[in-house]
């Protein structure tokens, strides 16, 4: 099959007049992205969400852990119009925008703070999997041959694990290994860090450790196709080291598709966090996460639907945003990218 020479490859060719073409490719992509209204809206929402996460303490009317036991399960008056079934038993208080939860904490504030966990998962999960996956995949793809074969078989084996199950085992392992170590040791530092993060660290590591395999495969495929390109040959002939070729010449050219693939995988990370919360392996209380709020709220869905609907709504909006941005990025940036495999 005739593979059209990629524009990137030509861009590297100093003899052609296409030197500026690379810039215009990105500009073109950006223009196309901006034309895609859904993607723009998605991007704006994500921006707003990150701002919310950063300024959570300014936005939220109450601290997320502030309990007022007597106010538990109270709802604002307008909620009865939305959920009339609550009429016979609901206690009214307009102090809380979306109502209060089972120990009288402001739902809205907790959703605002919950942005932090979900968006950190959305940031760190991909970073870990990118970091491991790209290094692994490029080594495998670049050196090829026997090494490639062995490395890819390892990925295949890891891939054969049920991801969530592996996370559960890993989390149980981490949480117990780092339970109460002696101060001053490495494990102590790690467990302190985890405690500081409300138990998020191990969630990130767990998710990252199970998600990099896809990334490694993708990277390897990209590197393989890039390896044979003229400009790489050229770099090699002028004596560039492997490391330099990899980092200076190959990686910048394949980063686009990788980022797109990660963006599309982000909703998966967020739902994984929600699932872990459901089975009780989520963040430590009282740190709020949408996942834990949804799984707790789901228990009262008949009695107090507001306690699960609103965090779910926040999650849905985030997922929409990431999905649309991801799709938009893909459409704009790399029309050749196929799936996640």
């Amino acid at each position: 099959m005739a593979q059209p020479v990629t524009l990137d490859a030509r861009a590297r060719d100093k003899d052609t007049l296409l030197t500026t073409k690379r810039e215009s490719l990105w500009q073109d992509a950006l223009r196309r992205l901006i034309r895609n209204r859904a993607a723009v809206i998605g991007g704006v929402i994500i921006l707003i969400l990150y701002l919310t996460a950063i300024f959570a303490d300014k936005i939220a009317p109450y601290p997320y852990e502030k309990q007022t036991l007597v106010d538990q399960n109270k709802v604002p008056a307008w909620m009865l119009k939305v959920f009339p079934t609550m009429q016979p038993y609901a206690k009214i208080s307009d102090k809380y925008l979306l109502g209060a939860d089972y120990v009288g904490r402001d739902l809205f504030s907790r959703i605002v703070y919950g942005t932090r966990v979900s968006l950190t998962v959305a940031l760190i999960g991909p970073l870990i999997s990118l970091f491991i996956g790209v290094i692994y995949g490029s080594i495998s793809g670049y050196f090829g041959g026997r090494l490639d074969n062995i490395m890819m078989r390892i990925v295949d084996v890891l891939y054969a694990f049920p991801g969530l199950l592996f996370i559960i085992l890993l989390m149980a392992f981490f949480r117990s290994t780092f339970a109460r170590p002696e101060p001053g040791t490495f494990t102590y530092t790690v467990s302190q860090l985890d405690a500081r993060l409300g138990g998020m660290l191990f969630i990130f590591i767990g998710i990252g450790l199970t998600a990099w395999e896809t990334m490694a495969r993708l990277t390897r495929g990209q590197v393989l196709s890039m390896r044979e390109k003229e400009f790489i040959e050229a770099a090699r002939t002028i004596g560039a080291t492997d490391l330099r070729i990899m980092f200076r010449h190959i990686l910048p050219n394949i980063v686009g598709p990788l980022v797109v693939a990660e963006t599309l995988a982000i909703p998966g990370y967020i739902t994984t966090e929600a699932f872990l919360s459901f089975i009780g392996l989520g963040v430590n209380p009282p740190t709020p996460s949408w996942g834990s709020m949804i799984s707790e709220g789901a228990q009262v869905i008949r009695t107090y639907p507001n306690q699960t609907i609103f965090p779910a709504l926040a999650l849905a909006i985030t997922m929409f945003a990431f999905n649309f941005l991801g799709d938009g990025l893909r459409d704009a940036l790399d029309p050749r990218l196929r799936g996640t495999q």
């Binding site: 859904a38 909703p267 739902t271 929600a274 699932f275 459901f278 949804i294 799984s295 709220g297 789901a298 869905i301 699960t308 609907i309 779910a312 999650l315 849905a316 997922m319 929409f320 999905n323 649309f324 799709d327």
Partner: peptide, 14 residues
């Protein structure tokens, strides 16, 4: 796409 994403965003838990 909205309908599709709705499926992912509203987990079975709810």
């Amino acid at each position: 796409m909205s309908v599709a994403i709705f499926g992912v965003s509203v987990p079975v838990i709810i």
